[in-house]
């Protein structure tokens, strides 16, 4: 690599542009997580209720997301909303929509699992103290469930962040899309630039995701004691 391509990263506004792209990715991940976790908590709660209809509908919802790859989800939103329902919104928001629904599905399963794994005698001893349904949920089940589900939730967040790499497929100006533009613009002068740009993006994703993974692992290890 006589003509080192690393300079591509720092030419002009390239680095700032990459960071801007990264921010778009992170922003979409954060907003989707916020919406998805709220919605997922609601769905998870509903799934512990007795109503068969509600449980069945939510199960169908969950299974749909279990079967359809996220790339395909993005395309479903991207093509079907504007053409079928005449809803036009920026691709960024379409991505948020698809991701939120996906996160809600996954998280509802985590919430339900956590609520159901709170030991039965905990529920019973709460009832024995005269707590009503809501108090039982608020003071006994929820605090224990949150502790149980935190590692799985963090892992879900790392997956959402990684999945933002698919955004370029629906033309969102995410970090990879920006990277591709930079590579193309410099292809003539710096053919090895591609190596450095993708390398940097690779490292950026790692820097964002790794601390979260570590945190989840740490929490899981602590729970085992």
């Amino acid at each position: 690599m006589a003509h080192s391509g690393i300079s591509v990263l720092f030419e002009g506004t390239n680095f700032a542009r990459l960071m801007g792209g990264l921010w778009t990715s992170v922003w979409i991940a954060l907003v989707s997580l916020a919406i998805g976790l709220l919605l997922g908590t609601l769905f998870g709660l509903l799934r512990t209720l007795r109503s068969r209809l509600i449980r069945f509908v939510l199960l169908l919802y969950l299974e749909f997301f279990r079967i359809v790859p996220t790339v395909v989800l993005l395309f479903l939103v991207y093509y079907i909303l504007p053409r079928q329902f005449n809803i036009n919104m920026p691709a960024t928001w379409m991505a948020v929509l698809a991701f939120s629904l996906w996160v809600a599905a996954e998280f509802s399963d985590i919430v339900r699992g956590a609520l159901e794994s709170v030991p039965k005698h905990q529920r019973e001893s709460g009832q024995a103290l005269g707590l009503n349904q809501w108090q039982l949920f608020r003071y006994v089940l929820l605090p224990q469930a949150i502790q149980l589900e935190l590692p799985a939730t963090i892992n879900l967040a790392t997956r959402v962040i990684k999945t933002t790499s698919l955004l370029l497929m629906i033309s969102v100006m995410d970090v990879i899309n920006v990277g591709q533009q930079i590579i193309e613009a410099n292809n003539q002068t710096h053919p090895t630039g591609i190596f450095w740009v993708y390398g940097l993006i690779f490292i950026l994703y790692f820097i964002v995701d790794y601390p979260l993974s570590l945190w989840a692992k740490h929490l899981t290890a602590k729970q085992k004691d």
């Binding site: 190596f195 993708y198 390398g199 994703y205 790692f206 995701d209 790794y210």
Partner: peptide
């Protein structure tokens, strides 16, 4: 394990498919 788990498949593929030929 940490590197593979904490980076997206898409970037891993771009690397293999587009960046490796440069090498």
């Amino acid at each position: 394990v940490e590197v593979a788990r904490n980076t997206p498949l898409l970037i891993q593929l771009f690397f293999l498919y587009y960046a490796f030929p440069v090498m």
